[in-house]
């Protein structure tokens, strides 16, 4: 373990790749290592890229990262999440295809992850992967979410800046996406802006933002991009930097990160509790309790109390 820790501190990519795998596989060792290296985290700035399928998230990420590499020569990690099949447990992780130019860039690390049954647009281990990339010295970390539906809200709890990518002509998604998802955006990117319907989409987003004038000091900007022809990428990156500056100056970055950490702790606790509940011996007790409830010996509320007592006692 000492070796791995040293390798990671030295920025070894293979060690990082392996550690991410261990975290994905829920191996205890991974968490022991992360404990030891926790001091080395918190330096990277984390950017979430989310949006519906076909909105061009990967291509946009590719272009943003190239811009960062060219202009600022900062190191960038990319985590691309794709859905795991609920039937087979397998996954095709294909986001890399659109970033292959970056694969030989020494200052870039790309990792694809399957959701492995986790809902919310990320995988359970995405958070840990962020930490690993942070530890090996990545200055920016991009997370590309699954992008399949409307429940991609995990990203705000992981990223410092969240970019919501939308495209004109995907139908009435604005209406559909509105509930819950629009609020997560710190920045809107209207991609494929060389197409008809762009101005209408921008107007719709503006209207929505005006309708929800919660007293936030940050009004999400709307940036028109065309990732394929590399238009608007500089502007989008500038918007991200402006948001970063804003968060730092207002100290909101700290507030946000503390809140995210709180969520993370809660998650770990939940995980632990769930694993206690699903332990073999508890499993048997649970079964017995269920039988008792069925026979009306006790009610489900009392049964739950019993279970909690067992866990507490255990």
């Amino acid at each position: 373990m000492v070796d791995i820790i040293e390798s990671l501190k030295a920025g070894d990519k293979r060690a990082a790749a392996r550690l991410i795998t261990k975290a994905e596989n829920n191996e205890k060792e991974a968490f022991e290592i992360l404990k030891k290296l926790y001091d080395n985290t918190g330096n990277a700035y984390v950017i979430g890229i989310t949006g519906p399928p076909g909105s061009g998230k990967s291509t946009l990420t590719d272009k943003l990262v190239k811009e960062i590499r060219k202009k600022y020569n900062k190191k960038v990690g990319i985590i691309a999440v794709d859905p795991t099949s609920p039937f087979t447990g397998g996954a095709i992780l294909g986001d890399r295809i659109r970033m292959q130019d970056l694969s030989l860039d020494e200052g870039v690390f790309i990792r694809s992850m399957g959701t492995r049954g986790h809902l919310g647009g990320l995988s359970k281990a995405t958070n840990y992967a962020v930490k690993v990339l942070d530890i090996i010295g990545m200055d920016y970390i991009f997370i590309e979410t699954v992008g399949v539906g409307q429940s991609e809200v995990d990203i705000v709890k992981t990223a410092d800046t969240t970019v919501l990518v939308m495209v004109p002509g995907l139908g009435d998604d604005i209406q559909a996406i509105k509930a819950g998802i629009m609020e997560i955006a710190d920045i809107f990117a209207v991609n494929k802006a060389d197409r008809g319907g762009t101005d209408r989409l921008v107007a719709e987003i503006e209207m929505m933002l005006d309708l929800n004038p919660e007293n936030t000091p940050w009004k999400p900007p709307i940036v028109k991009t065309s990732a394929v022809s590399n238009k608007g990428v500089t502007e989008l990156l500038d918007a991200i930097k402006t948001h970063k500056k804003f968060l730092k100056e207002t100290d909101l970055l700290k507030t946000k990160r503390i809140s995210n950490i709180e969520t993370e702790i809660l998650k770990i606790v939940k995980e632990e509790l769930m694993s206690l509940i699903t332990q073999k011996e508890n499993h048997d007790k649970r079964k017995r309790l269920a039988v008792d409830v069925y026979h009306k010996k006790i009610d489900p509320f009392t049964a739950a109390d019993c279970l909690i007592k067992i866990i507490k006692g255990g």
């Binding site: 990519k13 293979r14 790749a17 392996r18 991410i20 795998t21 795991t84 397998g90 996954a91 095709i92 992780l93 294909g94 890399r96 295809i97 292959q100 694969s103 030989l104 690390f109 790309i110 990792r111 694809s112 399957g114």
Partner: peptide, 23 residues
């Protein structure tokens, strides 16, 4: 299994780097 598909026209260098990063 989890499959990382690289797409067409990959150099051996790209493939190996991909395999390392993807573990």
């Amino acid at each position: 299994m989890e499959v990382i598909y690289t797409g067409l026209r990959q150099t051996p260098e790209q493939i190996v780097e991909t395999a390392l990063q993807e573990d």
